[in-house]
């Protein structure tokens, strides 16, 4: 007996709820932007400079005591959070301490680190410093820039590739879906105030790669069916294509989520933010390739007869609710 995620043939009208699904996407994007603007992202030191120290101790973490120990040093904004992971036993208590970049220093300030370590050891002699990372403000500015360039560059490269392999409408649809995925993921990071650092940028780029992968498979089928069914309305051919590829879309998402789920649960706390971003992105990417990308293509229309001008095709289906 085989496990079937979807019946052998499906005939779901994916445009039936377009006002709800597509509308929801637009609302999510706007909400994400609003959340990012109002709450802001919890930038890691990669992007705003400063120092993070990961401490481990057999003693229970006392955030208040750590803060008291550090207050006399006058380091400005210091955040102390305890880290939990099922893999830690009772005798492993982990905390992350983040200290803002110190005023007037372009580079890392080594003396500060020493003072912080001394102060904490004074409070808890058994404390160890599992990792210490410092990024100077000069580099963090460049890292923001290169991260933005990476995301824009990847999106641009994908736009050009899809345009060359398909039609420009597909490229616009695919990229809109990508922007949707990235914006919503960033919104979730702002909402939950998960630390946003370089690794998360890598995760965003992976989401781009995954989401485009999904979208391209649907588009590939659409391209094939548009040749096969020359006279059927575009909306029907689209529904057919999504239905035909639905089983594959879900299969791939589920296997990927299974793998990522294992990593999320067992991969340790160091990369949890990174894994979470990809996990969430796979879900939103699957959603967007089914409900977002093709709506844009439908709205723009597709030139189905190469002899005719592009613009004529757009008007044919402009009455469709998209």
């Amino acid at each position: 007996m085989r496990l079937r995620l979807v019946p052998e043939t499906t005939n779901i009208n994916f445009f039936g709820y377009a006002p709800v699904t597509f509308g929801a996407s637009i609302v999510m994007m706007l909400a994400s932007l609003a959340v990012v603007l109002t709450m802001g992202l919890n930038f890691g030191i990669d992007f705003r400079g400063g120092t993070t120290i990961r401490t481990e101790s057999p003693q229970v973490v006392d955030v208040g005591a750590y803060r008291t120990a550090l207050t006399p040093l006058e380091l400005g904004d210091v955040s102390i959070t305890e880290v939990f992971d099922p893999a830690f036993g009772d005798d492993r208590n982990v905390a992350m301490i983040r200290i803002q970049a110190q005023e007037g220093f372009e580079a890392v300030t080594p003396e500060t680190l020493l003072l912080v370590e001394e102060a904490l050891t004074g409070h808890d002699p058994a404390i160890t410093f599992a990792s210490v990372e410092s990024v100077g403000p000069k580099v963090s500015g460049e890292l923001i820039w290169s991260a933005v360039m990476a995301v824009l560059g990847a999106t641009g490269a994908i736009l050009i590739y899809i345009w060359l392999r398909f039609e420009w409408q597909f490229a616009v649809g695919a990229v809109f879906a990508l922007v949707h995925d990235v914006v919503v993921t960033v919104g979730v990071f702002a909402l939950l105030q998960i630390r946003f650092d370089l690794a998360v940028i890598a995760a965003l780029l992976t989401i781009l790669g995954y989401s485009i992968n999904d979208t391209v498979v649907v588009f590939d089928r659409l391209r094939e069916n548009l040749i096969k069914f020359k006279t059927r309305p575009l909306i029907d051919v689209m529904n057919l294509s999504v239905n035909e590829t639905l089983s594959r879309t879900l299969m791939t998402s589920i296997t990927t989520l299974l793998a990522l789920g294992a990593l999320l649960a067992l991969g340790g706390d160091v990369i949890r933010g990174f894994t979470f971003a990809i996990f969430f992105g796979v879900i939103i990417g699957t959603y967007s390739s089914v409900f977002v990308a093709k709506n844009i293509v439908l709205y723009l229309g597709v030139n189905r007869d190469p002899k005719k001008k592009d613009s004529a095709a757009g008007t044919n289906f402009s009455d469709v609710d998209a």
């Binding site: 990961r54 893999a87 372009e106 580079a107 890392v108 080594p110 160890t128 410093f129 599992a130 990792s131 210490v132 990372e133 410092s134 990024v135 100077g136 000069k138 580099v139 299974l258 793998a259 990522l260 789920g261 294992a262 990593l263 649960a265 067992l266 991969g267 340790g268 160091v270 990369i271």
Partner: peptide, 29 residues
């Protein structure tokens, strides 16, 4: 110095261990 990072060997070992288990579980599922 513009950037400095230290990672303790135990933390690295933990990460390898966690990664290995996660990879095996991922494979199996």
């Amino acid at each position: 110095f513009l950037e400095e990072r230290t990672v303790g060997p135990e933390l690295g070992q933990d990460s390898i261990e966690a990664g290995r288990i996660a990879a095996l579980v991922a494979m199996a599922s």
